[in-house]
Design a protein around this nucleic acid. Structure first.
Lengths: 328, 328
DNA sequence: CTGAAAGCGCTAACAA
DNA sequence: TTGTTAGCGCTTTCAG
């Protein structure tokens, strides 16, 4: 590995001069510049990023903390972040927190020690103070929590009302909701949307709430249980995985989807097109959420003003077979 | 951010001494050590990783290059790598190559400049030379290609034979194969397994080969086409996504799965449990593959000998509804 | 057992 | 326009 000294020696100039041409910074004679560039070429010299980082305290690296990349909601989000950061020559360190406060803190510590230029955080668990005392730019993604930071989220409340209303529109009157984990903010927002819509339709009934934890399996069991005790003709699941669980439960009981029970999920992950029947869902602009988060992080890093601090992206009803009935 | 100088000053010792207690390296008087530790505590001092990296040329960071994290095969693999590296205090930089040589080269360049301690590579496209002249440890994951490097792969050939044989065992005689992209080594190995098994069963027929590209959509179209032209009673898809495509095609033609056409996929991603009927598949130990790759990378980094260079992990037949018929 | 000093590879004043 | 110099924060000889 050639260093800047080697280049300087070969070109017959000082390292300062080489640094100047490297960073297009300060004046340098045209001829000298040519010589330097030739030397760089010859030695195939690439500046050492670590040394640069040590001096400039900026690493062209960001940290991305997600609960669990193997949860099918996150890969697309991560991909979007990576794509955009890549454009701006940033590299991303991926961290899986499992929503554990302990792991998050640890990661943040490590990231700081590595001089990351910013952090994108997808989590709710993190105690405010921890993040507040961070001296790097932060963007909160997907799970709204701290108004103090820029954030990118989707319209969970509105989406939930939309889903509930859709089930109503196709004729459902006993609409159950499989709820996500209570400590996850977006799950609670979806619940609120469901509740408000049900109340305004005059259909609200506490017995229609099914406890889920965003996992297929648990949702299936809970739905099985619920369906035995209570009659329902529509299910709005808090995410797509749970919608699949509900689908399996309904089918296992010998009921038809959508004729006997209509089902709609939430998130719009690719999986929803793979079931039979295909699942209706509220689709979030996952890729766009990640991309915007990345872009506003870069803006912050570059010290540019954000024209908007909190992004709430619209969601969209995707109507598929699992809710396709005659409208009344 | 406190530096080692601050600690030294507060403890009334030289930085060298502080460094010694930090790295348990060299002798230091017990009392002195106590004073130093107290100072560290008081200032909440954390050594600056970047400075350390510059000096030691080791960053406690590795690069992980995958084709595309949003392809459902990779999240679990990535998760495994992250989990294991985390245990050894390494951090992972995630890179999506899209199997593009250009992007891979670029990433490798960047990773080298950041002094990563090692690279895990999931790709076939990379020209040998590029990687060969890397001076950091490398592990090839999932896609066998270069015997020069340690690798972790699954038994693609054996798995394909197993799948084909399974379809035969449940009574299929016209067994089609949806092939993965020709430039992907593991797709070709699976094809070989299929071909050899079919030949040894005396069922080989070139017309039964369907061209796929590992994508659901394309596989569905191709299968639709194939089914119209040729009668088949079993389909072995080169991966699970294509198996879903095949499933959709078969269902669209009004045929029953598994009665008319049995289907088996490959990979064993969670998705296979979510379809109706649930898909039989050849399950690869995805998490384990990632974990082993990470472990042997660490071993290499630490300069320890590998007891084995090439790992070929066994696969497993998972029998689900899509092939559940009476055996004959 | 401890400190002084050199240097990892780069950048940024400050002079010249 | 260019070179000299002093660090960024850490580790490691080498003396003492």
């Amino acid at each position: 590995m050639a260093t800047i000294r080697d280049v300087a020696k070969l070109a017959g100039v000082s390292v300062a001069t080489v640094s100047r041409v490297l960073n297009q910074n300060g004046y340098v004679n045209e001829d000298t510049e040519k010589r330097v560039r030739k030397a760089i070429e010859q030695l195939n010299y690439k500046p050492n990023e670590v040394a640069r980082t040590l001096f400039k305290k900026t690493s062209k690296t960001i940290g991305l903390i997600v609960p669990d990349i193997s949860n099918p909601f996150f890969p697309e989000l991560v991909r979007a972040v990576e794509d955009v950061m890549n454009i701006y020559d940033y590299t991303v360190i991926l961290c899986n927190s499992d929503e554990k406060n302990e792991k998050e803190k640890q990661y943040i510590e490590v990231l700081k020690q590595k001089y990351v230029d910013g952090i994108i955080l997808t989590t709710t668990e993190l105690a405010m103070e921890e993040v507040l005392e961070l001296d790097v730019p932060v963007v909160i993604l997907d799970r709204p929590s701290m108004p103090a930071f820029p954030s990118v989220v989707a319209d969970n409340y509105g989406g939930a009302r939309l889903a509930t209303r859709h089930l109503y529109d196709i004729g459902c009157r006993k609409i159950a909701h499989i709820q996500g984990p209570p400590h996850v903010v977006n799950a609670m927002q979806r619940f609120s949307g469901y509740r408000d819509e049900m109340q305004s339709l005059g259909l609200w009934d506490e017995n229609l709430i099914i406890q889920g934890n965003y996992q297929l399996k648990q949702a299936k069991e809970a739905t099985l249980q619920a369906l035995k005790e209570y009659q329902v003709d529509g299910i709005f699941a808090g995410n797509d995985a749970m919608a699949v669980g509900a689908l399996k439960a309904v089918q296992q009981l010998g009921l038809r989807v959508p004729e006997d029970v209509a089902i709609i999920g939430y998130d719009g992950i690719p999986l929803t097109e793979m079931t039979t029947p295909e699942l209706s869902t509220i689709s979030q602009p996952i890729y766009e959420m990640g991309a915007i988060a990345a872009r506003i992080l870069v803006k912050q890093i570059e010290g540019k003003p954000l024209e908007q601090i909190h992004y709430m992206l619209p969601v969209e009803l995707i109507e598929r077979q699992s809710t396709r009935r005659e409208k009344r």
